[in-house]
Structures are given as structure tokens and as C-alpha cells.
Simulated scan of single mutants.
Amino acid sequence: MTITSESEHDPFTEHRRLLFATAYRMLGTVTDAEDIVQDAWLTWNRADRSAVRHPKAYLVRTVTNLSLNRLTSARATREEYVGPWLPEPLAASPDIAEGTEMAESVSTAMLVVLETLSPVERAVFVLHEVFGYSHVEIGGFLDRPEATVRQISHRARHHVQDRRPRFDTDSARRGEVTARFMKACAGGDLNAVMELLAPEVTAWSDGGGKVTASHHPLHGPDHVARWLLRVTTQAEAAGATVTTAVVNGELGALVLMEDVPVGALTFDLEAGLLRNLRFQVNPDKLRGLRGDRKPTAGA
């Protein structure tokens, strides 16, 4: 006879990965997503389980509303953020970036687009477009009529479509271009780097006031290429290494100091050229890559 523990049948444990995936797409930060999942567990632990007919829906609704509250308050904080605000990068994992569509929904480019939605629009888009919940179900989560949710969904979808990056998604091509890009940077070859950058290339770096980073985006191949080579040179002088890695479901690069990530670079690829480069160096926003994420209760 096989003996199983009660925790193995606990709905929270069963759906914990989904809950984190939902919160992360809602908030764009690993830290906040973990906090939301922790709060959801506390709510679940206090709930009258006998009154919960659909545990999964109850938990998703709880995470959605907790995320909405967190996102609303975070907007004011981000207005005072030092320099550009970029999402927290996350190492790819099957529960977060499984399949092409799921990978795109967690890409840095998509998370940046989601930042331009209102909190409610973001919730509706994530639940409907990413996780496939119906407008009726989402209405139940948000306590809004189906017709209202449908209107919000339509508005959010068109907003995202207008801003969604339409870049190369072929993994083999991305791998080949990334290898050439890394070689050019490592070799200090300014012309080779510039040849791999799109004419409209822009680079953002997020230091959050914790480490040195540009407070303004850089535009154009010359400025961006010189910045890239300067970053590479400084990293090597400090004893760091730069290596390719999958970040937010896409091939990018990590700057490692004694195998600890101190920087993460993601980019969009357009016609074989790098278009939008986003460099995360805020040490508080690299926990999702360091493997030191705090354990969630109920795990």
C-alpha cells in the first residue's frame, strides 16, 4: 500500500507554481511575487476549506487581488525610482516559460509592455491571454460583470498588440547571433559589435541607485556599442566573466562574479540584429537568477 502525506493533496501545493507564475507576470518582480504567494498561503491556511468549492479558482482569485493591491501601491514607488525601471530577471524553468507562447509572456520585452497597462488591464490580460481564463471566470475573480471584463480585455489586448515587439523568435538564429555578439564584445571589436546592432538600437540599464548605471537610455549603434565594450572591459578588470544564459525564456547573457550573477542582459532580435537591450544590474533584482529565492510556505 502506498502512503501519501496530506500535503501532497493540498490544493495550494498543487497550484503553487501557477500562483507564482501569475503573480510574477502581474508584478514583474520575483520578490513581490514570492510575497504574494506567501500571503495567499496565509489566506488559504485561515480559510474555511469546507466552504471552498473550487480551490484552484479561489487561490488564483486570491493571488490576483493581492497582486492588484501590490501593483497599485508599487506604481507610486516606481515613479521615484532612480533611473529606468526594468523587471526582475528570472532563470527559465518549465513552470514559468513552457512553450513558445508562455515563454513570450514572461520575456523581458513583454513584461515591459505590460507595465504600460493599468493594474486591472494587466490582470485581465494575464488571466485571459496567458492562462486562458474566460471573461466570466475573470469577472468572478475581480467582482466585475462579464461585459465589463470583456471591454477591459479588448482594450488591453489591442494596447499590447500595438506595443508588442514583433521580433525574431527562431532559437537557432538567436543562438548564432548571440554567439557572434559575445565574441565581438569579448574581443573588443567596436566595428563587429556595431554591425550586430540595429540602426534604431536602444539600451537601458537598471541600477536602482544601488550600483553605477546610466539614468537615461542610450540610442544608436555607436553609443550602444561603446557602452557595451566599456561594460565588458570593466567586468573583466573586476574579475567577472560574461556568459550566455537563458533569461526569462530567451537566450541572453549574465555577468558572473565568482559564479554569482551581478548583471543580466536581455535583448530583442530584429532581422538578425539586436534592437532593444536591457541590462539589469540592481543587486536587489537579481535574486531570481542567483538561486537564493526564499522558500514559500506550503512548498
Rank of each mutant, 00 (worst) to 15 (best):
T4F: 13
S5C: 02
E6R: 13
E8P: 01
H9A: 12
H9Y: 01
D10W: 09
T13W: 11
A21Y: 05
A21T: 08
T22R: 11
T22A: 02
T29Y: 01
V30K: 03
A33D: 04
D35E: 10
I36V: 13
Q38G: 05
Q38S: 11
D48I: 12
V52C: 05
P55K: 05
K56I: 07
A57N: 15
Y58F: 15
R61H: 06
R61T: 14
T64H: 10
L66V: 03
S67C: 10
L68Y: 09
T72D: 09
S73A: 15
A74Q: 14
A74N: 12
E79F: 04
E79A: 02
E80D: 10
E80L: 02
Y81Q: 07
G83T: 07
G83L: 11
P84F: 05
W85H: 08
P87Q: 01
E88W: 05
L90R: 08
P94N: 08
A97N: 12
A97I: 01
A97V: 12
E98V: 02
M102F: 05
M102R: 15
E104A: 09
S107Q: 12
T108K: 00
T108H: 05
A109P: 02
L111C: 06
V112C: 13
V112K: 11
V113A: 12
V113G: 08
L117R: 08
P119D: 13
A123N: 13
L127A: 06
L127H: 04
F131C: 08
F131A: 09
F131V: 09
G132N: 12
S134D: 11
I138C: 09
F141D: 04
E146L: 07
Q151T: 15
H158F: 02
H158T: 12
V160D: 14
V160N: 12
D162A: 13
R164W: 06
R164Y: 10
D170G: 05
S171N: 01
C185Q: 10
C185I: 15
A186Q: 14
G187I: 12
G187N: 13
D189Q: 12
A192S: 15
M194H: 00
E195G: 01
E195S: 15
A198M: 02
P199T: 06
P199M: 08
D206R: 06
G208F: 03
G208S: 09
K210P: 00
V211C: 04
V211M: 01
T212H: 09
A213K: 07
S214M: 02
H216P: 00
H216D: 12
L218P: 06
L218W: 04
H219D: 03
H219Q: 09
G220F: 10
D222E: 14
A225V: 08
W227F: 11
R230I: 03
A237I: 11
A237C: 04
A240I: 00
A240D: 15
A245H: 15
N248P: 01
G249P: 09
E250C: 06
E250R: 15
L251S: 11
L251R: 14
A253D: 00
L254T: 07
P261C: 03
V262Q: 01
V262S: 01
F267M: 13
L273Q: 15
R278V: 07
F279A: 00
P283Q: 14
D284G: 07
L289N: 02
G291L: 07
D292Q: 03
K294G: 05
P295N: 02
P295E: 03
T296I: 09
A297G: 03
A297F: 05
